[in-house]
Design a binder for these strands. Structure first.
Length: 397
RNA sequence: GGGGAGAUUCCGGAGCGGCCAAACGGGCCAGACUGUAAAUCUGGUGGCACUGCCUUCGGGGGUUCGAAUCCCUCUCUCCCCA
């Protein structure tokens, strides 16, 4: 955050909602160290660039000397989501939550300074609540208020189930704010409603209502919201090369938003990169480099770029190729694909070969009948554009 | 509590006794063209011992030579009324 003066302006940049700007300005002016809350549900182990946006905002607060307060939502996650619909998340075990939390720390730590952050679990207080406490909390919300939200309205219209506990969610989240006495709560813009509930609850408790600050939803590699369920995300812990490649494959129109949400490049510089007439590819490479550098440093980022160029621009081979050893020396191509997990099933393997998507040592395999003998140095197996594998014959297991 | 509708392959959504491994669209995979962009085009998209066989249409049971399709029952969901 190398930037001139006004902390307020720094924090305001790239936000969608800020309730209210005046309050934030006032609190910043107080010179007090603000408590800035960000919640995370340990329902999965993956932190992706979409989360990165709001984490970066939290980091910005940290850089200005404020206190980050991370809420781990194990209270709600333990309850699980009983909404009947097929593959809703099952209740998580304590072990799973701990594991997810561990992974989360590792990943979030790439963006925020966890050493200086306060990390609390809301399960600590929710588990302690009695049913009567719960009722009292529930009484603070109204159904009308809850279901006016787009999210619920859409699902109901669509005929999907909405569980009663889901109506409780915003209240629980708001209660967290009361518990940690948050000055500011961060979230993606879809979270605005939940954040606002926190304000109400705090006010009822005689606390000064938190400032709610939301960040834009990052569009994923396919243009939809970046999300685990869409499989269109870029994970923070993915190998640098992978991250670089995925960034290169985003649609051009995402460039402006990705630059502003995921990098610290000054607007003027971005403007030059995206000027009409410039090759968008160049800008994208810069973006990819910036993002990788943010997690792994400039050195690694440069390496990832070189690798990318070699493999995809020059049709070369990656410098590091995973190796697999097989006990037999002679094997049918279809079998080979299945054994090396390049294809999930024999049928799929056949399709890949039939579709001319499989190469061995650079030559397209054009028959599913094909058999090959693994030579001394092994063989380079290549499926599609990005999957490379070196297969050797291992005399013994 | 009463009445109605519905549960289909990754998703949406056809099918309503054999021609159904199941239309069509989306997604996804592979190929062409590219800048691993967009747009477009082609092929594919349950499994296997693959011109055949096996397992799928919410669960269980039944009718039938034969069921995703008919009957019974269970579970779940939605809508209307109270």
């Amino acid at each position: 955050m190398k930037d001139r003066a006004d902390p307020f302006e720094i924090l305001r940049r790239g936000t969608v909602d800020l309730v209210t700007g005046e309050e934030l300005r006032r609190r910043l002016a107080s010179g007090r160290r603000l408590r800035v809350k960000l919640g995370w549900d340990p329902t999965g182990p993956e932190v992706h660039l979409g989360h990165g946006v709001v984490l970066r905002k939290l980091r910005a607060f940290q850089d200005l000397g404020h206190q980050a307060v991370l809420i781990i939502g194990d209270g709600t996650a333990m309850v699980g989501d009983p909404t009947g619909r097929q593959k809703q998340r099952p209740a998580l075990t304590t072990e799973e939550i701990d594991r997810n939390l561990e992974r989360y720390r590792e990943q979030a730590g790439k963006v925020v300074d966890l050493g200086k952050a306060e990390v609390v679990r809301n399960g600590d207080w929710f588990r302690a609540m009695t049913f009567a406490d719960t009722i009292r909390l529930a009484a603070r919300g109204t159904v009308a208020r809850m279901i006016e939200r787009d999210y619920f309205a859409q699902r109901m219209k669509k005929g999907d189930a909405v569980g009663i506990h889901e109506l409780l969610y915003p209240l629980m989240q708001g209660y967290d704010s009361v518990k940690v006495r948050a000055d500011v709560e961060l979230g993606a813009t879809e979270q605005l409603f939940n954040l606002l509930v926190g304000r109400d609850l705090q006010a009822e408790e005689g606390q000064e209502p938190q400032v709610c600050l939301t960040t834009p939803i990052l569009e994923g590699t396919d243009g939809r919201k970046m999300s685990k369920t869409y499989g269109n995300f870029i994970g923070v812990l993915e190998p640098p090369r992978e991250v670089f490649g995925k960034v290169m494959s985003i649609p051009d129109r995402l460039l402006p938003s990705w630059f502003s949400l995921l990098t610290d490049l000054p607007d003027e510089e971005v403007k030059v990169l995206l000027a009409p007439g410039e090759n968008p590819r160049k800008a994208k490479a810069r973006l990819a480099r910036e993002i990788v550098a943010g997690f792994h440093g400039a050195e690694v980022a440069r390496g990832a770029e070189e690798e990318f160029d070699r493999v995809f621009r020059e049709g070369g081979v990656p410098s590091e190729i995973p190796e697999v050893s097989l006990p037999q020396a002679r094997i049918g191509i279809v079998d080979l694909l299945v054994r090396t997990k390049c294809a999930p099933s024999t049928s799929e393997a056949r399709r890949l070969v039939a579709g001319r998507g499989v190469r061995v040592d650079g030559a397209v395999v054009d028959s599913i009948e094909g058999e090959l003998t693994l030579p001394e140095g092994g063989v380079l197996l290549n499926v599609g554009k990005r999957r490379f594998l070196r297969v050797r014959h291992a005399p013994k297991a």
